[in-house]
Design a protein around this nucleic acid. Structure first.
Lengths: 165, 165
DNA sequence: ATAAACAGTACTCTTTTGGTACTGTTTAAG
DNA sequence: CTTAAACAGTACCAAAAGAGTACTGTTTAT
């Protein structure tokens, strides 16, 4: 069960998306928790972390609360992921296995993983909080498509590929 | 520490890549383990799983071993991931949180995550084992690009997205 | 002064992973 | 027909990561 974002990150997008709907209001953590059906301490934790990364702005004291740190258009999913999964980002750690990798194949593999990382990364960067809120971004007919249930590609992999190069 | 592939999957690509270098040989699990510096039982486990998904073919008995189940060009990273992370694929489970999601925002978020999933998925599909072995595939000018170190987008989010297609 | 909120730390419980052990089953070779 | 080298399958264990909670500050409007 991998290649998943953590629940915390999921909560983060939930919370932020909700807040993006009312850009002017100030939300208390308990408020948000109640509205979204999450645990109050959990939401608190998420907000605090988001605050550390300037994705939300906090107002302390009585009648305090949280608001987005900047306009929703300027917050990408990638940034949310970065904030909540304290990690340099990357599908592989690749190195961790120490002396297990640089035998003969001198890790051309790593280069390829980095390329894949790049694509994934961009996918996350290209979706903003504002997109999450507004009806149908779909940004150009580009990536929409029946990508939803691809399981049996069998034989049609690494597509046209010969035409390229 | 998420948005990572599991080590098992990492090992899988390692093993398969190595095998792809010698399409004709038959590799024993212990052989591969020794060559790649991994634990023999671990490699065995990985190979068995890969076999269940027809990514490798096994020959039993003395002098038996494993070979690729089909040409390296027809094996995508997506397929390896699918095989080794028994999971329907998807960055979020989205549903698991039961009654925590469908309040007022009626999950437009989910739709967006699915879109992101699609992009990620395609990135994984577009890299084949053959690509891992050969010098520089880079598929076509499409997804390649200076994607390597994007961190500070700040204010430039959800861009013009491709014009292409 | 007080109460409602954020801030920070530390801890616990559960799940998932990664890895190992053990017991079959198959088959070439002597 | 016995043996040894390989795959096949199951079950298990230990370590790490996630997720959530509790508790103790600090700030500030009333």
């Amino acid at each position: 069960m991998m290649l998943r974002i953590s629940k915390l990150t999921d909560y983060g997008t939930l919370v932020l998306t909700h807040m993006a709907n009312f850009p002017d209001r100030l939300f208390s953590a308990t408020d948000l928790a109640a509205t979204l059906g999450l645990g109050a301490p959990t939401v608190s934790k998420v907000l605090k972390t988001l605050g550390r990364h300037d994705l939300v702005r906090s107002v302390r004291g009585l009648h305090g609360g949280y608001a987005l740190g900047r306009p929703a258009v300027q917050i990408s999913v990638a940034q949310i992921v970065d904030a909540l999964e304290e990690q340099p980002f990357g599908l592989t750690e690749c190195s961790a296995s120490a002396g297990s990798c640089d035998f003969e194949h001198d890790c051309r593999i790593r280069a390829n993983w980095q390329r894949i990382n790049g694509v994934v990364r961009r996918a996350l960067e290209d979706v903003s909080l504002a997109d999450m809120v507004s009806p149908q971004p779909m940004v150009a007919g580009s990536d929409a498509r029946p990508i939803t249930g691809p399981q049996s590609i069998k034989g049609r992999v690494a597509p046209d590929q010969e035409s390229a190069r």
